[in-house]
């Protein structure tokens, strides 16, 4: 991805390091404590995801996939093990630095859409740029472009309450795209949508993948997971099955972006 290369150059790393996976999880363990009871949600997960991959993480509820998603999204930290995201050791960062990583590297799409009801569509879309300290006039332009990308340019000034569920989720996808993040992390993005809107949003992910975006999708529905190029199955805090640690995928992604 051009964007990743740019950032890599800015941070002084040689471009050759782009071969490094976007996500590198080694011996990841997460223990939750509730009083005297300990619960191990992740019990040693190794996972690598390369730039341009479209990966579905699948598992029943209680499998640890939500915990995995929180860790990947830098919303939660590991108890043991290490997590490298786009060359950054996430374990060593404090809360403000994590916030910046989330802002720069990750575009979130949630099951509940999580749009702010008082803000117009484009105001919702520009939020990551607001915290990324992008000047106001540029934010508006980029929000417009992102809304165009998801086919909602006509709904620019509508508030979420005036949009259908599918449209709201597309606004959320636009918000995830607007900051040009390293990866899009979608947590059950179709969980609240009817079949038409589901197809709508998944079609959008297909298009984004074709453009070289790295997409990680968390779901419990096989139908949804099958749209991805690679399915990682999680069960009882461990990776049970990973069908496509295909090294060719990343190369394809980079070519597509170039």
């Amino acid at each position: 991805m051009a964007d990743a290369r740019e950032r890599a150059q800015l941070s002084g790393r040689p471009a050759a390091d782009l071969d490094e996976p976007v996500i590198q999880l080694l011996g990841a363990r997460k223990v939750y404590k509730s009083g005297s009871i300990e619960f191990e949600a992740l019990r040693g997960v190794d996972l690598e995801i390369r730039a341009g991959e479209y990966v579905a993480i699948m598992g029943p509820s209680g499998s640890g996939k939500s915990t995995l998603m929180n860790v990947l999204g830098c919303l939660d930290t590991l108890t043991h093990g290490s997590y490298r995201l786009a060359g950054n050791d996430v374990d060593e960062l404090d809360e403000a630095e994590l916030a910046e990583i989330r802002n720069q590297q990750i575009g979130f799409v949630f099951q509940q859409f999580n749009l702010l009801p008082s803000l117009e569509a484009w105001r919702n879309v520009e939020l990551p740029l607001v915290y990324g300290r992008v000047p106001a006039h540029e934010r508006r332009k980029r929000a417009e472009r992102a809304l165009e990308r998801v086919g909602l340019e006509s709904r620019f000034a509508n508030k979420p309450g005036e949009l259908s569920g599918g449209q709201q989720q597309r606004v959320a996808v636009a918000r995830a795209l607007v900051g040009e993040p390293t990866m899009i992390l979608a947590d059950e993005p179709t969980g609240n949508l009817d079949s038409v809107s589901t197809e709508d949003v998944l079609g959008l992910f297909d298009e984004l993948h074709a453009l070289g975006r790295t997409i990680v999708l968390i779901t419990h529905e096989l139908e949804v997971a099958q749209r991805a190029r690679r399915i990682v199955r999680v069960r009882d805090g461990l990776i049970q099955d990973d069908d496509g640690a295909d090294p060719g995928t990343s190369a394809r992604g980079i070519e597509a972006a170039a």
């Binding site: 919303l75 403000a96 989330r102 999580n114």
Partner: peptide, 13 residues
Amino acid sequence: REIGLRKALGAPP
């Protein structure tokens, strides 16, 4: 929820 969302989108404390 709003606070959580803003934080997820990169709002520092």
